[in-house]
């Protein structure tokens, strides 16, 4: 990287690009992520955002509401603060971002773009990126498109009413798979690495400094595609109490279900914010705070009560968490 990345403090003091007017649920992690993306892109470069169809789009680009993206009207000298944003279809945000980058690259090459190379950032839901849009995600990565992609991992198709998504944890209730399905979810981190991403990370804004570093690194990646998977507690779909968003973000990592992770291609990566096996909080601690798992276990008078007969399924989820950490360690060493 040409310049050292900004410190957490520098990052935190930057100007946001996610402004009032959005209609995400109060308590939605996506709002926190978008503020962070806004700050990371306030780096003197023009920013282009592309959005798939997902909660983060319909809640921020709803005409005639205020568009909740941008840093307000800029004078031409502050062109670097200006922002263009585009939604096309459900699964296309990586491809349209890649197209913007391609156009910018040719313009820069012939000397027709005098400003610093723009930030091009794609935002997508996990359904948009890993179900219907797996093709576009992986091929944009494979072509080494110089864009950063932030995938909001809420494990459901939230926008359309919390249907099953192939990113869902085993036995997570959804409106089309009541009680959930037993299969392990898709290995999203592995797929992105295998496709050739220059930078792959998983991180929750609940770990603020880690997430700021990851967001900055993604946006400053210049040798290929940067992909950041953002575990995104969905208050409406997961059915948890208000105020738990950050806590669930942390527990998701600590239990091993969605550990913090980052890796640059060709360099050893790291798995973070997940204690060693034995010291990890058991998955039940995470599950009982969300009613989407209440058929497996619940909190009764502060005690975890496992539903009789579902012990095996809980064990399967625990086994998935443990295997997931081991798998991520292998990917880190890849």
């Amino acid at each position: 990287m040409a310049r050292p990345l900004p410190t957490f403090k520098e990052h935190a003091l930057r100007e946001d690009a996610f402004v009032e007017g959005h209609a995400l649920c109060p308590g939605c992690m996506e709002a926190v992520t978008f503020h962070e993306v806004g700050r990371a892109t306030d780096n003197g470069k023009k920013t282009v955002l592309t959005l798939g169809t997902f909660c983060g789009e319909v809640s921020t680009l709803m005409y005639p509401n205020l568009i909740s993206w941008g840093r307000g009207p800029q004078s031409p000298e502050l062109f670097g603060k200006s922002l263009g944003v585009m939604h096309n279809v459900f699964e296309s945000s990586p491809t349209i971002a890649e197209a913007v980058r391609d156009v910018a690259t040719v313009l820069e090459g012939v000397g027709a773009w005098k400003a610093p190379s723009p930030n091009v950032v794609a935002l997508s839901g996990d359904g948009g990126a890993l179900a219907i849009g797996l093709r576009s995600l992986l091929h944009t990565i494979q072509r080494r498109a110089r864009i950063a992609i932030f995938v909001q991992m809420n494990e459901v198709f939230a926008n359309t009413g919390f249907q099953f998504s192939p990113t869902a944890l085993p036995f997570a209730d959804s409106s089309t798979a009541p009680g959930g399905l037993p299969e392990d979810p898709i290995d999203h981190v592995g797929l992105a690495i295998a496709a050739g991403a220059a930078f792959v990370a998983q991180g929750s804004p609940a770990f603020a400094p880690f997430f700021a570093e990851v967001a900055e690194e993604a946006i400053n990646t210049s040798n290929g595609t940067a992909v950041v998977f953002v575990p995104s507690p969905c208050i409406a779909g997961w059915k948890f109490e208000e105020g738990l968003t950050a806590e669930l973000g942390k527990l998701a990592s600590q239990t091993g279900l969605f550990p913090c992770f980052r890796k640059r291609a060709g360099e050893p990566g790291e798995v973070k914010h997940v204690p060693e096996k034995g010291k990890r909080p058991p998955v039940e601690q995470y599950l009982v705070k969300q009613r989407r798992f209440e058929h497996l276990a619940r909190l009764v008078d502060g005690e975890i009560r496992v539903t009789p007969g579902r012990e095996g399924d809980l064990a399967k989820l625990q086994s998935y968490a443990d295997r997931n950490v081991e798998r991520l360690k292998k990917w880190a060493a890849f």
Partner: peptide, 26 residues
């Protein structure tokens, strides 16, 4: 510098998406 290029996409859907992004870019 190559002033003119061909962009290979992985499917026609992607080609159309790419066109949307490129045409919107400028």
């Amino acid at each position: 510098v190559r002033t003119k290029r061909v962009k290979q996409l992985e499917a026609e859907h992607a080609a159309a998406d790419w066109l949307a992004g490129a045409a919107a870019a400028s």
